[in-house]
Design a protein around this nucleic acid. Structure first.
Lengths: 230, 230
DNA sequence: GCAGTTTCGACACAACTCCGTCACTGCGCC
DNA sequence: GGCGCAGTGACGGAGTTGTGTCGAAACTGC
C-alpha cells in the first residue's frame, strides 16, 4: 500500500481544524494542522502535502499572502480555500492566485471530502487502494462518476440526497441524529430545524429501498435519528 | 491512554451540577463546574473542554449570551444546552447560535451521558479505549449503532427501555431502587410513582429473557428494586 | 423564465409512555 | 402451616410524542 495522501489544514480555529482533520483522517488521509499563516507556509513547502486547505482569515500572514508566497516559490500544490466571506471579489482574487477550489463557510463535511477526493483524483496522487465504489444491499455508489445504481439500474439522486447518502454510509451502522446529519451535509451553523432531513431520507428510501414503507437499510431510530445498515 | 475528555458544566443549581458532574466522572471524564455565565465563559475559553453543558437560565450572563460570546471568539466547542424551557423558539434560537444538542429538563442522566458520548465520538476527542459494545448473557448492546441483539437477532427497544437497560447495566450487579432508576432514566424531580418502572422492566424481560416468567438476568429484589447480572 | 431541487409547515398516523386495575406471589405473624 | 398484607407482574387503554407524507412556496442553475 502506497503512503496515504497528505493533507495540510491551515486554519487558526482549533476546534474547526480538529473537526476537519478528524474527518479527513477517517477517510484515511494523513493530516497536519497549521494554526497560522507562517507555519502553514513552512509546512506546505517542507512537508510536501498533496492538498492544502487554506483559511483566508489567519493571524499574521493571511490566506492570500500564504497562497501568493506559495506560488512565488513555484509550488503548484492544489489549494482549496476555506472562507467565511462569500464575496465575489474574494473568489476572483483567490482564483487569480491560482487557488483550485473555493469553499465558503459554513460548508458541509461531505462537500469538503468530495472536493479533496476530486482534487487527488485529478492530480493522480490518490494512490490508496481505495474503493471507488461503495455498496449496501443491491445499491452501488460510484464515487468517481458520482452515480448511484440499484440492482444495476442507474438512479438519479440530486446533490443533497447524494451527500446525505454518503454521510450515512460513511458511518455505516452508527446512528446519526438529524442535527448531526445537518451539520455534516448542510454545514455547521445551519439553522434548519424542520422536516428537511426527514424529507430527504424519504427520498432516499423511495429511490433505493425495495419497499420504502418497510425499509431494510435506511432505518429510523426513534427519538434519535437514522441509521444505515448493509 | 490519552487524557480523559474534559467536560465543562455551566449550571448555577449546585445540586444538579454536582449530580451531573458525579455521573460524568463515573464515566471517566474530567469535569469542571462553573456556577455562572461569566466564569463559565472564561473556563470554556481557558480550560479548553471537549464538551460544554450549558444551562440557559444563569445569573448575570445568561446561557444564550455565553454561547454567543463563545462563538464570537471563534470557539467551536460542542455545546449541549440544558433548558427548563421546552419552547420551540428557544430551541431554534439555540441551534441558530450553533448549539449542538438541546436537552430539556427534566432529563435523565442516561440520556445526557449518551449525548455526551455521541458528541465525543463525533469530534473524535474520545480517545479512551472505550467499549462500544456491552454484553450480558447472550445479549449484546452496540452503543454506536444504538441497537440491542439477543443471540445475534436484533431486538428493537424503545427509547425508555433502552435507557433503562443501560442504567441497569451501568451498575451491573448492584441493586437499584425504583426511585434511583427513575432519577437516572426519567430525570430528577420526576414524580412518577406507579407501575411505570415495573412496566418497562417487564418489557425488557419479555424481549431479552429466554423465559420472561423466570428471569435469569433481570432480577427482582423484593422490597428494594431491580438488579442485573451477567 | 423554466425545470428541477430544496425547504418547510400541516396533518394523519404510528410508536411509545404512562398509569390504573386486578391477579398473584412472597413474606411475616400468629 | 394458614392467613393477611404488602409488593410485584400482567394487561390494556388513554394520552402524548415523534415520524412519514404530501403539497406548496422559495430557491437555484441554466
Amino acid at each position: 500500500m502506497s503512503p496515504a495522501p497528505r493533507i495540510l489544514v491551515i486554519e487558526d480555529n482549533a476546534d474547526l481544524a480538529q473537526g476537519i482533520a478528524y474527518n479527513l483522517q477517517l477517510e484515511g488521509y494523513e493530516v497536519r494542522i497549521a494554526p497560522d499563516g507562517r507555519s502553514g507556509l513552512d509546512a506546505a513547502l517542507l512537508w510536501a502535502p498533496d492538498v492544502v486547505l487554506l483559511d483566508l482569515m489567519l493571524p499574521g500572514l493571511d490566506g492570500f499572502e500564504v497562497l501568493r508566497a506559495l506560488r512565488a516559490k513555484g509550488s503548484r500544490i492544489p489549494v482549496i480555500i476555506l472562507s467565511a466571506r462569500a464575496e465575489e471579489a474574494d473568489k476572483v482574487r483567490g482564483f487569480r492566485l491560482d487557488a483550485d477550489q473555493y469553499v465558503t463557510k459554513p460548508f458541509g463535511v461531505m462537500e469538503l471530502l468530495e472536493r479533496v477526493a476530486a482534487m487527488l483524483r485529478r492530480t493522480g496522487r490518490d494512490a490508496r487502494p481505495r474503493e471507488e465504489t461503495l455498496t449496501f444491499g443491491d445499491v452501488h455508489i460510484d464515487l468517481a462518476r458520482h452515480t448511484v445504481a440499484k440492482s444495476g439500474k442507474e438512479v438519479v439522486l440530486p446533490p443533497k440526497a447524494y451527500e446525505l447518502l454518503l454521510a450515512l454510509l460513511r458511518r455505516q451502522g452508527a446512528v446519526m441524529s438529524r442535527h448531526e446529519l445537518l451539520r455534516e451535509v448542510w454545514g455547521y451553523g445551519s439553522s434548519v430545524v424542520s422536516r428537511t432531513v426527514d424529507t430527504h431520507v424519504a427520498e432516499l428510501r423511495r429511490k433505493l429501498e425495495d419497499d420504502p414503507a418497510a425499509p431494510r437499510h435506511i432505518l429510523t431510530v426513534w427519538k434519535i435519528g437514522y441509521r444505515l445498515t448493509a
